[in-house]
Simulated scan of single mutants.
Amino acid sequence: MLEDMYPQAVEAGIPSTEYWGMTLDEVMVQVQANKKNKENELRERAMFDYTQQRLGIYSFNDPKNFPDFEKAYPFLTKIKEEVQEALSEEDQMKRDQEIIMMNAAAIKETRKRKNKEQ
Rank of each mutant, 00 (worst) to 15 (best):
N65L: 09
T51Q: 11
M1W: 07
K36S: 10
E26V: 06
K64T: 02
A9S: 07
L76E: 15
E39D: 11
S88D: 14
E11S: 14
N65R: 09
Q118M: 04
I57W: 10
R111L: 14
E89F: 09
Q53T: 15
V29Y: 00
K64F: 07
T110N: 15
A86V: 01
Q8P: 01
D96F: 01
V27Q: 05
S16A: 11
W20R: 10
F48R: 15
E26Y: 01
I79V: 13
G13I: 05
M47P: 02
T51W: 02
T51Y: 02
A12W: 04
A9L: 03
I107K: 09
F75K: 05
W20Y: 00
A46F: 08
T77S: 10
N34W: 08
P74N: 04
E18P: 03
Q118C: 06
Q92H: 06
K38H: 04
G13C: 07
V31G: 06
E90F: 07
T17S: 14
I99W: 12
N40L: 11
A106W: 08
E11H: 10
F69Q: 03
G56T: 01
Y58D: 08
I14W: 02
A86R: 11
N115P: 01
Q32C: 05
F60P: 05
E98C: 02
N115Q: 12
P15H: 04
Q97E: 11
I99V: 15
Q32P: 00
W20H: 08
R111F: 08
Q32E: 14
R111D: 09
R95C: 07
K112C: 03
V10S: 00
A104T: 06
N34I: 05
R111S: 08
